[in-house]
């Protein structure tokens, strides 16, 4: 029978692995010897001290001090271990909650958008028809219907705005089955950076690319990843002040490829950091952003079997990191086996 350890996949690359580590099952299996030591060494040493006290009380005093120190170190390292496991569990929980929340909101908004689309279309039609009638009446009577026409035009404009939002919502909730192709990430990032370069130069912002030449190829969905990278870059550009700096970097980390977009802009206040991937969350003035950009990124990265996270402090910029499995099919197979 194969030992459980031999069937273990790379750490942190699949959900069961993360779950096992988070719940502590994995800690016990991988480090059982160490844990036995943690639990047994201090009492054994204490017993020795008691035994030594029979021979020489002075020696026992010194030994007792040493044992106390060892026990303290042991307890401390155990505590660190525990809190680490707890943190990992918490992070995983948050990730799951976030994904579930986004999926639920996506479904809800798609349903809503679909329902609202029909009345909007009718309003648009009626407004057009009314404009037509007013035009004819105006010709016949010679009266000025300018104000009526103006308000009808405004109705059309606002209806268009609604349509824009419902289309974005439907697009947001659309399920995309990723199509995997081998892609050159460095080139992809550079291509997207070139689209942003000009707008950046207007703001006197430098867009630095830190792309190692030996970056391995990645199997992923090219247009989806382009959208993610582009969205993160434009986001960064909106966050920095004139003269700011944005850095787009990529590096390989085992079976994972990590893309990071770092800016030295205003940063994200702690009370907002949990909300930034929520749909409709925006700090821009009304009408200037639907608040769907980052949640869209989250959706897309989720679909590519990757993770997206953010690190930021007010006034110290923000870093968005996207971690993608270099070979998502491989990971799926591993996940099914363990």
């Amino acid at each position: 029978m194969p030992s459980p350890a031999s069937r273990e996949a790379e750490p942190g690359t699949n959900a069961p692995g993360i779950l096992a580590r988070a719940t502590g099952a994995r800690v016990w299996r991988d480090h059982s010897l160490l844990l036995w030591a943690h639990f047994l060494v201090p009492p054994v040493l204490a017993a020795l001290v008691v035994a030594a006290a029979l021979a020489s009380p002075e020696l026992a005093g010194i030994l007792a001090g040493a044992v106390l120190a060892i026990a303290a170190v042991s307890a401390r390292s155990l505590l660190t271990r525990l809190s680490k496991a707890e943190e990992a569990g918490l992070a995983l929980n948050n990730q799951l909650i976030q994904s579930q929340k986004l999926a639920a909101i996506g479904e809800l908004s798609a349903g809503l958008a679909h329902e609202i689309n029909n009345p909007i279309a009718i309003i648009a039609q009626e407004a057009e028809w009314a404009a037509h009638l007013v035009g004819e009446a105006g010709q016949r009577t010679g009266e000025a219907f300018d104000e009526v026409k103006d308000s009808l035009r405004e109705i059309r404009a606002q209806v268009d705005r609604c349509k824009n939002i419902t289309h974005k919502l439907l697009d947001f909730a659309r399920k995309r089955e990723p199509v995997l192709q081998e892609i050159d990430v460095a080139r992809l990032i550079d291509d997207m950076a070139r689209l942003v370069d000009k707008e950046a130069s207007y703001k006197n912002v430098t867009l630095v690319r830190t792309l190692p030449p030996d970056l391995p190829k990645l199997r992923t969905d090219a247009p989806l990843l382009r959208q993610v990278v582009l969205n993160l870059m434009t986001n960064a550009l909106h966050a920095v002040d004139t003269g700011g700096r944005i850095e787009a970097s990529a590096r390989a980390d085992g079976e994972v490829l990590e893309i990071a977009i770092r800016d030295n802009g205003c940063g994200i206040p702690p009370e907002n950091i949990d909300k930034i991937f929520n749909p409709f969350f925006t700090t821009k003035p009304p009408g200037q952003g639907t608040g769907l950009g980052l949640s869209m990124c989250h959706n897309l990265v989720d679909g590519m079997k990757g993770q997206i996270c953010v690190e930021s402090a007010v006034g110290r910029g923000a870093t968005f990191t996207v971690r993608l499995p270099r070979n998502p099919e491989q990971n799926l197979a591993d996940g099914g086996r363990t």
């Binding site: 291509d191 689209l195 942003v196 090219a222 247009p223 959208q227 582009l230 969205n231 434009t234």
Partner: peptide
């Protein structure tokens, strides 16, 4: 071009 990418163009 940017908007095109968001509308689902493959590349530019």
């Amino acid at each position: 071009g940017m908007q095109g990418m968001n509308l689902g163009a493959y590349d530019y």
